[in-house]
Amino acid sequence: MGFNIYEASAPVFIHSLRNMSAWLDKASAEKAESDLIDARLAPDMRPLSSQFQMASDTAKNAIGRLCGIDAPAMPDTEASFAELKERCARTIAFIESVQPGAFENAETRAVELKFPNGMGYQFTGSAYLTGFALPNFFFHVTTAYAILRANGVTVGKPDFLQHLGMPKSL
């Protein structure tokens, strides 16, 4: 079996959401939560809490759209690190509950995104994953990382890639 939509989506989302959850542990050990939860990179950007919410939404909705199932609704009410960590955990649990077989024919599944203004996009599953879902997901993951880093949390590339573990001698 070759590389497929499941392998390109579910594990990628899970690894990054686990990494993000760990960043909050590091942040809470180093800084006051109240100084970070609403921090932004720029005045017109969404705060840290929203970056976690949007990463979660992108991951769970992508899995739902690719498999033709409903993703769980999660209102954006998280206002603490503990609540954001719980949201990451619920998103991971949903993704893990979807069996790889559910991704059969996901590459060609029609995916339609409709925005409130009536505009939107139509994709095949593979184009949706590679052209929209993954870039959007990593925009929010990277923005969350950058907010923490810009506010003095000592996250680095090993934190962004911590799912790989320590490098080994080759």
Score class of each variant (00 low, 15 high):
118 G>Q: 08
87 R>Y: 06
90 R>F: 00
101 G>C: 08
97 S>M: 07
109 R>G: 12
95 I>D: 08
107 E>L: 01
110 A>Q: 07
116 P>N: 08
78 E>W: 01
86 E>V: 02
118 G>K: 01
88 C>M: 10
93 A>S: 13
89 A>M: 00
85 K>Y: 04
118 G>M: 02
81 F>R: 01
95 I>G: 11
86 E>S: 14
102 A>D: 03
111 V>W: 04
99 Q>C: 03
103 F>S: 11
112 E>S: 11
122 Q>D: 03
79 A>Q: 14
79 A>P: 01
83 E>Q: 15
117 N>F: 01
97 S>G: 11
107 E>A: 15
112 E>N: 06
120 G>E: 13
80 S>L: 03
101 G>A: 15
120 G>I: 02
84 L>W: 01
85 K>V: 05
100 P>M: 04
102 A>H: 09
114 K>L: 13
118 G>P: 09
105 N>S: 15
104 E>R: 13
119 M>V: 06
93 A>M: 05
84 L>Q: 04
94 F>T: 04
121 Y>D: 02
105 N>P: 08
79 A>N: 09
87 R>H: 01
85 K>C: 10
95 I>A: 02
79 A>R: 09
98 V>G: 12
82 A>H: 00
117 N>C: 06
99 Q>P: 04
94 F>R: 00
83 E>P: 07
96 E>F: 04
97 S>C: 10
97 S>Q: 06
88 C>Q: 07
106 A>R: 11
77 T>I: 15
99 Q>S: 15
100 P>A: 01
117 N>W: 03
84 L>G: 08
114 K>Q: 09
119 M>G: 12
115 F>A: 15
87 R>G: 07
82 A>D: 12
85 K>F: 00
102 A>C: 11
91 T>Q: 10
120 G>N: 12
123 F>I: 10
123 F>Q: 11
92 I>F: 02
83 E>M: 05
86 E>P: 02
98 V>F: 08
93 A>N: 02
106 A>K: 07
98 V>I: 15
120 G>S: 03
81 F>E: 03
121 Y>V: 09
78 E>Y: 01
96 E>D: 14
105 N>Q: 15
101 G>V: 10
88 C>E: 06
102 A>N: 08
103 F>H: 09
90 R>C: 06
77 T>A: 14
119 M>W: 03
114 K>H: 12
107 E>W: 01
80 S>T: 15
113 L>F: 05
114 K>C: 01
101 G>R: 10
98 V>Q: 03
77 T>D: 11
120 G>A: 12
81 F>L: 02
107 E>Y: 00
89 A>I: 00
114 K>R: 12
86 E>W: 04
78 E>G: 09
82 A>W: 00
90 R>T: 05
94 F>I: 06
116 P>M: 05
82 A>Y: 05
82 A>K: 08
99 Q>H: 14
88 C>K: 09
105 N>D: 15
96 E>P: 07
118 G>W: 05
85 K>L: 07
115 F>S: 08
121 Y>R: 08
101 G>S: 13
105 N>G: 11
122 Q>E: 10
79 A>D: 12
84 L>T: 01
92 I>S: 06
82 A>V: 14
111 V>Y: 04
110 A>H: 00
122 Q>M: 05
91 T>M: 09
82 A>T: 13
104 E>D: 13
105 N>C: 06
112 E>Q: 14
109 R>H: 03
115 F>C: 05
115 F>N: 03
123 F>Y: 15
78 E>V: 08
99 Q>N: 13
79 A>H: 08
86 E>C: 02
116 P>A: 12
